[in-house]
């Protein structure tokens, strides 16, 4: 995946709570067998609303999305992360994310930043007129108005994002300890170690 160190630019001040992945990308777009081109279906139901924020010209190409609590809840579809990437988004800021969505985002090089609701509210205010800056190395979000918020991130995820690491490749290199675990399973819990009809 593409390394990510720093994201700066306009942020879409969306702010809506409990946005599910059916809203991010409806099921009729899931019939694809590739990861590309899903931006066209992103937030389709919201984009039918006149004057919706996603089609406001000043946010065209914005790299940041600011959302409400529990962003990405519902279906595990990774198409939601692919759709955001295809829209040009590389960072989402929210008070909380669903567990599955944040994992999917991370694996596609999208930075998810968790900040308290007050900080998110302030960023939504700033985003009406000005850009926002996120630095992964120092784990900070700053604005042109001297706002400075720090965020927590899992150290392993941070390292993978900064270096663009291939997680499957990393784990494959640990084949020996996986084989050792399998040998233990065969000895202790043979009924789990294999599945035979």
């Amino acid at each position: 995946m593409t390394p990510i160190k720093h994201v700066a630019g306009r942020a879409i001040p969306f702010g809506r709570k409990n946005v599910d992945t059916d809203v991010i990308i409806p099921s009729h777009y899931l019939k694809t067998i590739t990861r590309e081109g899903l931006g066209k279906g992103a937030f389709e139901t919201i984009r039918r609303e006149p004057g919706n924020i996603f089609d406001t010209p000043e946010y065209a190409g914005a790299p940041i999305l600011i959302a409400g609590d529990n962003f990405g809840c519902g279906s595990s579809r990774e198409h939601a992360a692919w759709a955001l990437l295809d829209m040009g988004l590389t960072c989402v800021i929210a008070p909380s994310f669903s567990d599955i969505f944040s994992g999917n985002a991370f694996k596609n090089g999208i930075l998810t930043v968790v900040l308290p609701q007050e900080a998110v509210d302030r960023l939504i205010e700033v985003a009406q007129t000005d850009p926002i800056d996120i630095d992964l190395e120092t784990q900070t979000v700053t604005t042109p108005f001297q706002d400075r918020f720090t965020f927590e991130i899992d150290p392993f995820r941070k390292a993978c994002l900064l270096d663009g690491l291939d997680e499957v490749g990393l784990t494959l290199a640990q084949g020996d300890i996986i084989s050792a675990h399998e040998a233990g399973l065969r000895a202790q819990l043979p009924f789990l170690a294999s599945a035979n009809a």
């Binding site: 595990s76 579809r77 990774e78 992360a81 599955i100 994992g103 999917n104 694996k107 596609n108 997680e167 499957v168 784990t171």
Partner: peptide
């Protein structure tokens, strides 16, 4: 799980 995890 997501598709990247399916791959993993």
């Amino acid at each position: 799980i997501g598709t990247s995890e399916v791959e993993h």
